[in-house]
């Protein structure tokens, strides 16, 4: 079935931590103008914050690079958010997605980023190539009941 695009936005920014707030504001403004449920917006905002923080903290550890955030709303109510970095990539995706697993405990990273993205979205896909970068795709429906 072909999905029609209703609205789409793309944001690129360098991997500085103050841009985590920018990514949240952009996503929530974009979704509220599309009439998404307040609860859905709040959950996606949190999921995006986790994904973008991962890109900044882990993807570009010690280096600066570009993070892109893409959000598409389809006519059938699907919201697809894609967070992309061209950083170090993840060696073992399964391990990275385990709750409480973190490679940065000294920075008090709780290791819950993926667990939160998973529980706040309907579907999550992670593609990563070591040395090339990581792409996280979050799917969620615009209303609680889809």
């Amino acid at each position: 079935m072909k999905r029609e695009v209703k609205n789409k936005m793309k944001l690129s920014f360098i991997s500085r931590s103050e841009n985590e707030g920018l990514s949240r504001i952009a996503v929530s403004a974009f979704l509220s103008s599309a009439g998404a449920d307040a609860g859905v917006i709040a959950q996606l905002k949190t999921a995006v914050s986790e994904g973008v923080t991962n890109a900044i903290v882990h993807g570009y550890r010690g280096i600066t690079g570009i993070v892109t955030l893409e959000c598409t709303i389809y006519e059938n109510g699907l919201i697809r958010t894609v967070i992309r970095d061209k950083g170090t990539g993840i060696e073992d995706i399964e391990k990275a997605m385990e709750p409480l697993y973190t490679t940065a405990p000294e920075e008090e990273r709780a290791g819950l980023g993926f667990a939160i993205m998973k529980s706040f979205c309907d579907r999550i896909r992670v593609r990563s190539v070591p040395g090339k970068g990581t792409t996280v795709t979050l799917d969620k429906y615009i209303a609680e009941n889809g």
Binding site: T46, E107, E108, L112
Partner: peptide, 13 residues
């Protein structure tokens, strides 16, 4: 008004 897993890490720490 908003918190992500960084807040969880903060409380745990």
């Amino acid at each position: 008004t908003f918190m992500d897993s960084s807040g969880i890490g903060l409380v745990m720490g």
